[in-house]
Design a protein around this nucleic acid. Structure first.
Lengths: 340, 340
DNA sequence: ATGAAAGCGCTAACAG
DNA sequence: CTGTTAGCGCTTTCAT
């Protein structure tokens, strides 16, 4: 920090009566240091509360012991969980975590376009639901960048994803199997059509599932909930204004599902008696809501991504692609359709 | 990143036909550079995609354009919101954000004891609900450290807090005013008695409020919900096992309140008919739950903290202490007590 | 096993 | 207005 003229390696060297090279070696556990010397250095360092300046050492050594993680919105549940997972493994491996957010599609594109500049600051980078244009990815790979993507898969780097089509299909089939025919969809992210493929994949799976049962997917049964509780609420209101009201709704995030339920209740509908609702995520609060949902192991995904990054920092190996398991969690917001 | 041998200031200087000092000046917008020279440098820099190495520049200049934020649990809603708020203002001011987490009381103590080492990496530090022992604080102040505390107030540094006693009192009085006499408390953080004063303050306010109405505060009406939904659920179960069941409960966080409600429902109680529940925070999902609560402006608190930090980076001013406003948000989980 | 010395890439006086 | 020259604190050959 500004004013703090801190202890340098030289101070330690002087006090220990050795050269600063020796201090450097001793402190980093390198070989070729006499045990007695090492002990003495350690002792003095401790006594002086010496901490190597990370910037100086990065400049000299080229490593930062820092990794970056970029997410669209650091405050959203999903992203905060991924960050927390990554943070946990990174910090216990002695790495610091730099968090970048890029709210709008434009911010994200800009971030990615300029990613090289952040890659300069870190040993590796985790990209969560960020665009990854082939050209950039190629360039990064050539530069020898270390990164892993979450929610998106590229050829050159390790990735952590889920099988969105399958997971969404499970959700819709759960509804179908309960006898529902008029099934609404609350989707999101219409403002991010280019790279934010999640909504599209889930939407497509929804349509495919209906088609598989020869059920029509009406436009008036699809609404955009913007991935937020409030948005889910509005989306539900919209669905409730349809000429024929759906008897079940698949919201592609739990927060939207909760908003939908709350709106349905405001409209006097009983869940699940009049309306079944299934979400996606298994949010921490889903259980309190008794929400039926498709679970994805968000924290573990962050942990996994961090671990993969750490691995790729150690040696060059072909990129692994981890597809995290999802599972249906049946609680009490879905029920068999009653004749209407 | 590892492999990337990047463009240095020297490359730019050579290509632009000037000295590297001039490049440095031109790029940083310092005076005493001929407009034409500056233009030329900018152009070349752009062309070469030159990015100054942040580590080198920090080493030379002593500034990092990075601030740190330390929170107990980066994945918890409250903390993630504060981080998001701070991130927003910091990133738009061109600062990077390093996030530190310290889960256990011990981790937190250790972090604080060693804070100097992180202060070395950053221009300033935001401490959210971290211990701040007078001795350390004193030492930091002497070293000229820049920091602001959130949820805790010290003499030497700016702070952002809320008036916990008042806010908790408002919550309990809301219940009292609805005619409740048997009021339970779901608190948390018993594992962090030393510095994590929030639970204590709210607890004390609860007791004081009851005392003010000559109502007893029974031990069996207090349970620890560990600040989590699941914990709130267990706490509620415990309260429901009391010899006399409370007719209302004050949970000192919304997540615990939601857990409590869910547990009450499992036990066949109707909320608010049989049991009123009030929370604390105004969580994003509180509205979906129709939860009555005391709102604190979490994101704004993070923003404010960041802004104060930025200010204190600019000049030495006496520390400001910002007390964020809280407000009662009445929704539908509290109601007048019906005779029992 | 240890020391001396040459940078890492940039900023900040100091000259001109 | 611009160039030269020291460092910032540490790592890393290369000697010894």
């Amino acid at each position: 920090m500004s004013g703090a003229r801190s202890v340098t390696i030289e101070d330690v060297a002087a006090r220990a009566g050795v050269s600063l090279a020796t201090v450097s070696r001793a402190l980093r556990g390198l070989p070729n240091v006499a045990p007695s010397t090492r002990a003495r250095v350690l002792e003095v360092a401790e006594e002086l509360k010496y901490r190597p300046d990370p910037h100086a050492s990065r400049l000299a050594a080229g490593r930062t012991r820092t990794v970056g993680i970029a997410v669209p919105l650091p405050g959203e549940w999903y992203f905060s969980q991924v960050v927390a997972g990554a943070h946990a493994v990174l910090s216990s491996a002695g790495y610091d975590l730099l968090v970048y957010g890029a709210e709008s599609v434009d911010d994200r594109r800009r971030f990615v376009a300029d990613a090289t500049s952040v890659q300069q600051r870190v040993d590796g980078l985790i990209l969560v639901d960020m665009p990854a244009p082939a050209a950039e990815v190629e360039a990064w790979a050539e530069q020898g960048a270390r990164l892993v993507t979450v929610g998106q898969r590229t050829e050159h780097f390790p990735s952590v994803t889920i099988d969105n089509p399958k997971a969404a299909s499970v959700a819709v089939h759960h509804l179908l199997d309960l006898g529902h025919q008029r099934i609404g969809l609350i989707s999101g992210g219409e403002d991010a059509p280019l790279y934010f493929t999640v909504p599209n994949e889930r939407h497509a799976a929804y349509e495919a599932a209906l088609r598989g049962r020869k059920i029509e997917a009406r436009d008036e049964w699809c609404a955009d909930g913007n991935f937020s509780m409030e948005g889910g609420r509005e989306a539900m209101s919209a669905l409730l204004a349809a000429t024929e009201i759906p008897t079940a709704v698949f919201a592609i995030s739990d927060e939207m599902a909760m908003g939908a339920i709350s709106s349905a209740r405001d409209h006097g509908l009983l869940v699940p008696d009049h309306l079944s609702v299934i979400g996606f995520d298994d949010h921490d609060l889903a259980a309190a809501f008794a929400l039926t949902t498709v679970r994805q192991p968000v924290v573990e995904m962050g942990e996994r991504a961090a671990r993969m990054l750490l691995d790729s920092l150690e040696d060059d190996r072909p990129p692994q692609h981890y597809v995290a398991p999802t599972s249906l969690v049946v609680r009490s917001t879905t029920a068999r359709r009653i004749r209407d």
